[in-house]
Write a protein that binds this DNA or RNA. Structure first.
Lengths: 105, 105
DNA sequence: TATAAGGTTCGATAAAATTCGAACGTATAT
DNA sequence: ATATACGTTCGAATTTTATCGAACCTTATA
């Protein structure tokens, strides 16, 4: 059973996690990536190069790392190939409505 | 009737508006303000000083201006007194699910 | 094995956001 | 009318993000 303190901590972590997600989404490139992934078929895996980003590869890598660090995507690294996959179910489970909110853009 | 181009423009503006909102929410102080307002009773108006923020008044003013500029709150300025009100219905109309998403934090 | 093709990391630079004090403006109260 | 309280604006300093080239690493291919 959770004490008041634990519940409060949960709440804080939850808000912190949401803050991280909001920070990650608060950039046009990263928002576009997530919107694209949401509108893809469920479970789709996409090459990092398939989003038509017009930035240097170091910058692209930076943005994908950020999205991965906050849990928006999982990143399959095969050294040569890099695939991005939306963590759809996990996100819907933790923050119901987030996917739907971003799917209408 | 909307042409394809107009629909595309709408889409882009919509995403731009959402990007602005995400940027506004991507700061702990501003997120806390909005979460507090959401959990208040509908239509509540609150003094800017009632959120317990520990920043200088210039900083506080800056954050509230940002929230107002992206349409998250309306700002009633009486010279002396400053009240903040969540634009709940308008936001729910334009971005269904946003209020609900932030109400569970 | 050697070569090429991607992706990541590092270091430096540029751009954006945050913060605050000071000056100013506006309303309320004495 | 004067003083006080509160909010905004301005300017500067600090901090955080974003960006890119170069070097490096890993896999695939000749």
């Amino acid at each position: 059973m959770a004490s008041e303190i634990e519940k409060s901590a949960d709440k804080s972590n939850r808000q912190g996690a949401m803050l991280g997600i909001l920070k990650a989404l608060a950039h046009p490139i990263r928002l576009q990536i997530i919107v694209d992934l949401i509108n893809d078929e469920n479970g789709a895996e996409r090459h990092c190069t398939s989003f038509g980003l017009t930035v240097a590869k170091a910058t692209r890598s930076h943005h994908f790392k950020l999205l991965k660090d906050v849990g928006l995507i999982s990143h399959i690294d095969r050294g040569n190939h890099s695939l991005a996959k939306l963590r759809r179910e996990e996100l819907e489970e933790e923050f119901p409505g987030l996917m739907g909110l971003l799917s209408n853009l």
